[in-house]
């Protein structure tokens, strides 16, 4: 844009000439970028939300601390279809629990976000209260090392701000947080 003019023109008209050239170049540049990227982008409507792949998640605990939300958008989900409905639940009780009651010393969840309901002998139904859950993943670790792995971490899309670059994904130790299409916004274990 700063080439010396060869044409013998007055300063104003020379400037106008440059300006027109610049406009054309800039415009065509825009069109080029748009034309180059548009065909590829229009086809891929999806891949626009962040989600955790529970197969890769190692429950390092960073989801709790790294999310931009004051309380992490990562919550524990529960796949009832996978759950064993155990009395001695590895996600509900601490590892070396002596008595199976709801006393604080026996509970694993630091916020008390897991509630359980008696179904029939010997089965118990477990439910996550997402308002209390802070995504620390302790129960997930317990469940996947002692149980069926029916508890798993997911990004609650209602809360997630869908940052351009997910802060948790940046520090995720196993690369479990990836972009997914809107149609597969959750990677649920019971509806695989």
């Amino acid at each position: 844009m700063k080439k010396q003019a060869k044409q013998p023109k007055g300063p104003t008209s020379r400037r106008d000439f440059f300006k027109t050239c610049g406009t054309i170049i800039a415009g065509s540049g825009l069109l080029a970028v748009g034309g180059y990227l548009a065909p590829r982008s229009s086809a891929t409507e999806g891949d626009s939300m962040w989600q955790i792949d529970p197969e890769l998640c190692l429950q390092c605990g960073r989801c709790q601390t790294e999310c931009v939300m004051p309380v992490s958008a990562v919550k524990c989900f529960h796949a009832n279809q996978v759950c064993g409905y155990c009395d001695l639940c590895g996600g509900y009780y601490r590892a070396n629990v002596k008595e199976l009651n709801t006393a604080a010393e026996n509970m694993l969840c630091p916020t008390g976000a897991i509630t359980r309901k008696y179904v029939e002998d010997p089965y118990f139904e477990y439910t996550i209260d997402e308002d209390l859950c802070n995504g620390c993943g302790k129960c997930v670790k317990g469940c996947s090392s002692f149980g069926n792995g029916s508890l798993f971490l997911q990004i609650q899309q209602e809360i997630c701000l869908n940052c351009n670059e997910c802060q948790i994904a940046k520090v995720c130790v196993s690369g479990a947080i990836q972009r997914v299409p809107v149609s597969k916004a959750y990677r649920l274990k019971d509806k695989a």
Binding site: E125, G147, A185
Partner: peptide
Amino acid sequence: AVARFPKPDFHSGYQYPDIVHTV
């Protein structure tokens, strides 16, 4: 590594709760 416990066999007519995660 998963599926250590079999799917429970309910006799009390228990239905699996239908949890819907909104997007």
